[in-house]
Amino acid sequence: MISGMLTGILFARTFSGVIATVLGWHAVYGLAALINLILVIFIHRWVPDDPRTPVQSKRYSTIISSLPKLLKKYRYLRSSSLNAFCMFGITNLFWSTLAFFLVKYFNYNSAVAGNMGLLGIVSIFAAPFIGQMVNRYSPRVNITISWWLGVGACVIFSIFTHSIYLLMAGIVILDLSTQFSQVTNQAIIQSLSRKSNSRNNSIFMFSYFLGGSLGTLVGINAWSAFGWSGVMISAVIFLAVALMNFFLGVPRKLK
Results as ranks from 00 to 15, higher is better:
residue 223 W to R: 01
residue 190 Q to E: 13
residue 8 G to D: 03
residue 108 Y to C: 03
residue 41 I to D: 03
residue 196 S to V: 11
residue 191 S to Y: 09
residue 146 S to Y: 05
residue 8 G to K: 01
residue 185 N to R: 07
residue 106 F to E: 09
residue 209 F to G: 03
residue 32 A to W: 06
residue 157 F to E: 08
residue 172 V to Y: 09
residue 28 V to I: 12
residue 41 I to F: 13
residue 2 I to F: 04
residue 13 R to L: 12
residue 36 N to L: 13
residue 116 M to L: 15
residue 221 N to G: 00
residue 8 G to T: 02
residue 77 L to Y: 01
residue 214 L to I: 14
residue 145 I to H: 10
residue 252 R to H: 10
residue 93 L to W: 01
residue 37 L to A: 14
residue 97 T to C: 13
residue 242 A to S: 15
residue 74 Y to T: 02
residue 226 F to V: 04
residue 114 G to Y: 06
residue 225 A to E: 10
residue 220 I to A: 13
residue 196 S to F: 12
residue 7 T to K: 01
residue 177 S to E: 12
residue 195 K to Y: 10
residue 203 I to H: 02
residue 220 I to V: 14
residue 58 K to H: 14
residue 210 L to E: 04
residue 93 L to V: 04
residue 161 T to S: 07
residue 112 V to D: 07
residue 38 I to C: 13
residue 197 N to K: 12
residue 152 G to V: 05
residue 192 L to D: 08
residue 240 A to V: 15
residue 111 A to Q: 08
residue 15 F to I: 15
residue 189 I to Q: 09
residue 197 N to P: 00
residue 74 Y to Q: 02
residue 96 S to Q: 07
residue 253 K to A: 12
residue 186 Q to T: 14
residue 173 I to E: 04
residue 202 S to L: 05
residue 235 A to M: 09
residue 164 I to T: 08
residue 223 W to T: 04
